[in-house]
């Protein structure tokens, strides 16, 4: 029994090669689905979901189970990114600019631009760049980043309901795409897409970040919001038809389950395996409900998720 879908998820392309006006050696297209996730039997799933590994512009306060893989490079964002791509198989890099936070290291826009350039030089894959969460500072910094990397087709975030204009304008003017982040709410998600497209941003340059919530901490809300948006997109709702980015790694590593030592909770089993599986299981669920880009941190969770994607991309036509 096949469902006939009239709609399609928008195709967003990330990264530009030299011929296209950038410097990337590989580019990525996400979206384009005309069916529910991995329903190859009744529609097209033209592009596999991708895994973005996180890099920060400042040494992060990550726990040992991440630290041991990244400590040797995490004060050098370029090398950190290269390790993610070359050693751990990241499809692209998600650069989080926590160093610009005025309540933290308060680095300048010029510093941020330098880090973005360093990462662009170090790796050939497309790049996502996201601010620290302080609206004023983010606007200032992301404008500078957008200009400095004009033509690279970056994916820049985060636009939010009460702060999207500056970032939208910066993306529009410099050929980048934008992340529209909403707080676990499908109405705000849709509204924000409308607001951004009203500024003339085409639908194929917007990616939704629905704020997924952690496994065991509300991920089921995101699960259903994403399922509803995909159904909406397939029925032709253009304002819900953007590809979806899930911040799986970020959510996982703030959960108690990823951080409590086994001595404290013996019945939960080995801590590192538990943390890896907290991340990989959440990713697995998000894939089933329509994720296109998964932000992840632990190398083994990345490897498991890439294998899961390989298996799910096998044809299942009748």
């Amino acid at each position: 029994m096949k469902e006939k879908n009239t709609g399609r998820v928008a195709e967003v392309s990330l990264g530009a090669t030299t011929a296209e006006g950038g410097t990337r050696t590989t580019t990525i297209v996400v979206g384009g689905d005309t069916a529910l996730p991995f329903h190859h039997f009744e529609g097209e799933v033209p592009h596999r979901p991708v895994v973005a590994m996180e890099v920060q512009d400042i040494v992060p306060s990550w726990p040992e189970h991440l630290g041991k893989y990244f400590r040797d490079v995490w004060d050098k964002p370029g090398e950190w990114a290269r390790k993610g791509v070359d050693v751990y198989g990241a499809d692209l890099i998600y650069l989080k600019l926590d160093g610009i936070d005025p309540e933290g290291a308060n680095r300048s826009a010029a510093d941020a631009v330098a880090v973005v350039k360093e990462v662009l030089q170090a790796v050939g894959v497309p790049l996502i760049v996201v601010g620290c969460g302080n609206t004023e500072k983010d606007n200032e910094v992301m404008e500078a980043v957008a200009e400095a990397a004009a033509g690279e087709k970056l994916l820049l975030g985060n636009a939010e309901q009460d702060n999207y204009r500056t970032l939208t304008a910066a993306c529009l003017g410099n050929g980048h795409s934008i992340i529209a982040r909403s707080p676990l709410d499908i109405n705000i998600c849709k509204q924000l897409n409308i607001l951004i497209t009203e500024m003339n941003m085409p639908g194929n340059r917007i990616v939704i970040d629905p704020s997924i919530g952690g496994l065991g901490y509300g991920i089921e809300y995101a699960y259903s919001i994403m399922e509803r948006s995909r159904i909406g997109a397939l029925q032709g709702d253009k304002m819900l038809s953007m590809p979806i980015l899930c911040t799986v790694g970020y959510e996982c590593w703030r959960a108690k389950e990823a951080n409590s030592p086994e001595e404290e909770v013996p019945e939960w089993g080995t801590q590192e395996t538990r943390a890896i599986m907290w991340e990989a299981t959440a990713a697995s669920a998000m894939l089933q409900t329509g994720a296109h880009i998964l932000l992840m941190r632990h190398p083994q969770a990345v490897a498991l998720t890439r294998k899961a994607i390989d298996r799910l991309m096998q044809p299942n036509n009748y």
Binding site: L215, G216, I219, E220, Y221, Y223, S224, E257, E267, W268, G269, T270, Q271, T273, R274, M277, W278, A280, T281, A282, S284, A285
Partner: peptide
């Protein structure tokens, strides 16, 4: 039967079967 892998799986099961 690895507990560390089962805890996330059973958590997901609980999440999916929660009354929305």
């Amino acid at each position: 039967t690895d507990r560390a892998a089962l805890l996330p799986l059973l958590t997901l099961r609980q999440n999916i079967y929660t009354d929305p």
